[in-house]
Amino acid sequence: MPLAATTKVGDSYEETIVENLSRTQIVQYAGASGDYNPIHTDEVFATQVAGYPTVFAHGMLTMGMTGKMLTNYVGDGRLTYYGVRFVRQVWPGDTLVARAEVSAVRTEDGATLADLVITTTNDKGEVVMTGDATARIG
């Protein structure tokens, strides 16, 4: 069910967007998106050359998975804007929860729009990504 025009400020929704993120899912995202940066999929390169503790997910994978929560909440084809800031790396094994809260409901060019504030958090309680979105709700 898409978000209805009765939506009000403070309404919120959250979803676990990934449990125990696998290296294979990161590989899947590399293949689908075309971003083969070895820092995301190549343990030898990531640790020995780049100096990271292990590989880490593409920021865009976190944005994509958080987008799933968002479209589940607002409905398909309803987003007019979705933007994020990557705050912290996402590592294999992470479980992420994405949350959206309605910050404004307004009218623009005859359409009712909801503005949302987005936060994606890992299982240590650290924020890994923040963002904003706007969706047409009526």
Partner: peptide
């Protein structure tokens, strides 16, 4: 090394005129 790997992604924003 981040620079060697082309840097990191800090922000991404999409405005959808249609899907």
């Amino acid at each position: 090394s981040g620079a060697a790997a082309g840097g990191l992604h800090a922000e991404q924003h999409f405005t959808f005129h249609r899907h």
